[in-house]
Design a protein around this nucleic acid. Structure first.
Lengths: 199, 199, 199, 199
DNA sequence: GACTAACCGAGACGGTACGTCCCGTCTTAAG
DNA sequence: CTTAAGACGGGACGTACCGTCTCGGTTAGTC
């Protein structure tokens, strides 16, 4: 993640006092702390401002909503390797990729993501940002793996990689959002078994 | 849906005035109207009460949260056929089932569901109710179809039907929640093609 | 002062929970205390609410502005005898009336009045209320005295009592508002001497 | 009014760029415009700065408060003849003097003065400046007229001219601030009639 | 048929957070 | 060194709703 300022508004063009990076960092730090302490619903702009020792206006100046602050804070937290393993076979590629992607959702990260999905359903503008920033970038890695497999004939030409990605990630999101079944290694293995049948 | 009061608290034990069904109906009607007019975020207890011509307490007496009211209202709206087609082949069963299930999400119904998913991420108790009421019942129909197909050897014994359901519905939820691709008939056909390969 | 609720909005007509008099009193008390402690400029709705242990909305529900609260609190504080002495001669009537009216402005009461005059210049609606409640009622007593004197031929028929009241009270207001000269007994005596010349 | 900068702080001592008179003028102009457009309460430092195309600091550098800017702007607007008529008789002197002084308060000038009186009640430092600049200078002319009349025996030696000025101007301020009666020519005539009785 | 507990509408209450306005100070780059 | 621009910490605004708590009035069942 090169540009660490996901959703900050466009900065003013030229003159005037510059953005205070100390405040910027303090806000993100406060947001992250509150997130883990009281959960997404408990995070408020006033709370962030108070903890960061910052005026509310300073937050509103740079982010359009509570969710945007949280999103930037989360991105910062998730150093976000996005590995793209290329082992030569679909099976091992998938196993590696999904294992890494799924287990990280067990703890706080999963809770934060759930909060952001919620926000995305309630705020159209945020949804756009969230999908671009989080969803599409994660999909890209998986699409790579599937395309390579298709070239190697490990995957039928009939199969639309985009749709298959929706199915794979969709299963993950389902279990994360609804909690009706665990997001574990066993699930990954089962899913790999299913996908490797599609040759 | 026999009991039309999904989440209503336990009724009073013995004597005294009984629940006023007129108010009950007015509340659900008002909730549904507000939902379509101002969206889930704009629905408030005070708004429902005002529109229904009802005291706020009357709502709090019978439902634990805004989301619970909305959920009951939605269930009422979605007469909820849940067809369970049994045509003899996996392909046609799936095609019928999914087509019906997907297209209904294009309009208001989809928006309402998105709001409820959001709420489910923010309120643990509601999540439980929502998953039981909405998610598990929908899954059941699909699981039936897949189990029949497995018996007919149209589906490999290797494939865990539960996981496959997660993948199928997960793709639907992904597209509904993130909006990165359409939820249409073409998607259904493609998905059927993929699943029928898993024999 | 019969009706102790000078500027309270019209109460709701019939149903619903009634106004809580404890809160009403606590608000007026808090306002008065803050007034003497930090001065008119330092009185804020938030401050009153916090000190009274009351929600801000409860204040906004019953008074249209900070000034209105302060005015009601002041009226309450100023038990406001409004003596109307009738000694038989203009000179002694005036001396008594004005002495009582002027010395009371030396302390906090004067400061509070100054704050209300300020507010009256900045808020048209408040000005109307203030003038009706404070200004006109005070004038009435003095007008009585002058009219009696006119009947007794102690005051020329040429002299417009209303205008003379403006001059007498105007001198008081001038010195209160601008502070260029003291509001004391000597001033009262001098003024009585001037007025008794107008026979 | 020689020095048109009533309340400007001491200018910079020696080196460096000198005060920019263009900005000075623009600030006063903007202040006056805002005053007439939105009223005293609506005038803000930020508003003046924005309209004048000037940094806020530039205003704070030269004036101590919003009220000081407005006062200087007003002084500038009121070219302020202050005539001091000397016709030979108290009656005509007074008539001329007061007529000129009263009618000018009918329009915007009166509103502006009311705003400044308000500010003077809320800010002690401003009150001092305001009284020195506005109140005392206006009183001076009237005191002159009364002193001359006293010498000519048109006014009793008993009458304290300072107090009489308070009564005359006080009547004016009363009607301006409280609006309970008009500030017109008729009032002037009536008042002249009263004062000329004091011989 | 009278009693009475529970319901009902209305809406006041203490409270939290919102998003905005403006304050007076501070920082920057340009002149 | 001053200026225009404008970010900063802060305080208060007036509003929206929350979930709870009275009110007076109304049912609907049991005695």
């Amino acid at each position: 993640m090169k540009n660490n300022s996901i959703r900050s508004k466009a900065p003013a063009i030229s003159t005037g006092r510059r953005r205070n990076d100390r405040s910027h960092q303090a806000i993100l730090k406060a947001a992250m702390e509150l997130l883990t302490e009281v959960g997404y619903r408990g995070v408020t702009i006033e709370g962030i401002a108070a903890r960061a020792g910052v005026g509310k206006q300073t937050i509103y100046r740079w982010w359009p909503s509570r969710a945007a602050v949280v999103m930037e804070a989360s991105v910062r937290a998730a150093a976000d390797s996005a590995p793209d393993p290329d082992t030569g076979t679909l099976e091992t590629d998938l196993q590696k990729f999904l294992a890494g992607s799924f287990v990280s959702l067990q703890g706080t990260a999963g809770q934060v993501l759930r909060g952001m999905v919620a926000e995305a359903q309630l705020d159209a503008e945020f949804r756009t940002q969230f999908v671009e920033t989080f969803i599409m970038t994660r999909r890209a890695g998986l699409v790579q793996i599937l395309r390579r497999a298709r070239k190697r004939k490990e995957l039928s030409q009939d199969v639309d990689p985009e749709l298959l990605v929706d199915m794979i990630y969709g299963a993950k999101w389902s279990r994360l959002l609804f909690g009706h079944a665990p997001l574990d290694i066993h699930m990954v293995s089962q899913m790999v078994r299913i996908i490797t049948k599609l040759r």
